[in-house]
Design a protein around this nucleic acid. Structure first.
Lengths: 192, 192
DNA sequence: CGGTGGGTTGAGGTATTTCAAGGCTCGTGG
DNA sequence: CCACGAGCCTTGAAATACCTCAACCCACCG
């Protein structure tokens, strides 16, 4: 399925009839509060599976960040497979555990880290997940980053500027979405 | 197994040979940073299972909050059971999903909620999990609460005082660990 | 061209933290 | 029995990290 950037793939609380996989593009999972506050719990990039639920409704909204291609898998056939095949069942557990692990690390970040540490951790995560040779091409806006890190766009922007000024990174393009990491070692120290 | 309050049940990064269940008492799962910062990701109360891992080391430290009785289950026999029995495998997935769901909700709290909202959410969670008729007897200290909510002890204390002064709760004992919720409806509104 | 969306930067405000002091309870030992 | 210290909690005052508000720049697009 093709999704335009910004399109909602499924809404929070909607019936979980499908499970999805990113083929190409980027997707965010987020929780919305009624007053507009938002927390992004994860970004899903090439190959990532998302929208896996145990209950029958999605605990998140999923939205395409940029134009994306998403594979739709039928929920029921997965359930059936998991109920008969131990390998599938094991695979589901692995996927869920991976999400849990990420969530646990993210709780530490959100609860206890400074803005610099958060941004550093974010850059390293993205470098690990989508970089080609230290150049990170971010699909998401500053707002997405802020809602992922529990900060405001201004704080994210200021922190990136600070890292630029101290020689740890460089902006490679006009739109500020291509970032070259010049000193991953110092970044890793900041991440603590 | 009997554990004294404050005792470490297993350490962060330690080999995950056992899975545990709280029989009586209370346990915290936490991540420590080298500089002493700490994030508690969950409290485990009567009946709760914790220390379940997919990899071979614990991603957390687990510590008894008060004197507790913990049942120790052998990790390998669980793995074996999961590899042969679909019911066990399904049960493991359920437990992991439950943790994940809690972690996701907690990320929203840590990333986007005010101190009042955090404390309100905490009180409601504890009320749901261990209250007898609106009286919550907290096993944990203010420090534990603070490290769970991503706040300082002073902020937790001030927020509780504020809720007391506005008639939403009352302290029932000298040690401030017994809290009577007088107006759960208003608390739920604060939680948003 | 003008409008819109994304990003940066500055100035000022504020929620929360930090630092400091004091109260209460409890256990220990003289 | 009382003194003492330790641990836990509260409260106040001051500091600060981060947020809010506002202005501006730039790229893109109809």
């Amino acid at each position: 399925m093709k999704c335009m950037g910004g399109a909602e793939i499924f809404g929070q609380g909607k019936s979980a009839e499908y499970v999805c996989q990113v083929i190409e593009g980027a997707v965010r999972s987020c929780k919305h509060l009624s007053d507009g506050r938002r927390q992004i719990s994860a970004f899903h990039l090439n190959g990532d599976i998302f929208g896996l639920e145990n209950g029958n409704s999605h605990r998140f909204a999923a939205e395409a960040i940029i134009d994306s291609t998403v594979r739709i898998l039928d929920r029921r056939s997965i359930d059936v497979a998991a109920d008969t095949d131990l390998l599938v069942s094991h695979e589901l557990l692995d996927l869920t555990t991976e999400s849990l692990q990420h969530a646990e690390d993210h709780m530490l970040l959100l609860g206890r880290k400074s803005s610099i540490e958060r941004v550093a951790a974010f850059l390293l995560e993205m470098d690990r997940r989508l970089a080609a040779r230290g150049i990170v091409t971010l699909p998401m806006t500053r707002r997405d980053i802020a809602d992922y890190l529990g900060l405001t766009i201004e704080t994210v922007s200021r922190t990136l500027s600070m890292l630029r000024d101290s020689g740890i990174l460089r902006f490679q393009s006009e739109t500020q979405r291509k970032i070259q990491l010049l000193d991953r070692h110092r970044l890793a120290e900041l991440d603590c």
